[in-house]
Amino acid sequence: MSTLKRADDFPTRRRHLEQMSDDELHAYFWALAARLVAPLVEQARSHTTPSIERSVLLRMGFSSLEAKAIVDVLQAASLLGRGAGRVVLELARTHGVSVAEAGRGLVDGRYRAEAPR
């Protein structure tokens, strides 16, 4: 719960807005909103999550059950930052098997994904 307490100081706080036209006020509102979300967008651009990685694996043709198992293995190995899709694809290429087979092998321990040196 918040502990912020403040009386309504709108009449004094708004003085700098008073002279703005409606159009200027609207443009200012959207400029502030864009500034506010910019760091959140940047964080999204440069980060990932288990759900994003599972969603990538779904798109690669894995079932939800397989995607979960693969991401659990990669999360434990601290490899999510490389991208689950990339790791599985590299395993497939290394071992000359299909993407599906590489995913299964990763889960049952036949193939091991390692961070690049």
């Binding site: 288990p50 990685e53 689950a84 899709g85 990339r86």
Partner: peptide, 15 residues
């Protein structure tokens, strides 16, 4: 659970 993407990060899928 949020992880930074490495420079090699890849996802071979659309959208």
């Amino acid at each position: 659970t949020v992880v930074a993407r490495t420079p090699e990060y890849g996802a071979p899928v659309c959208s």
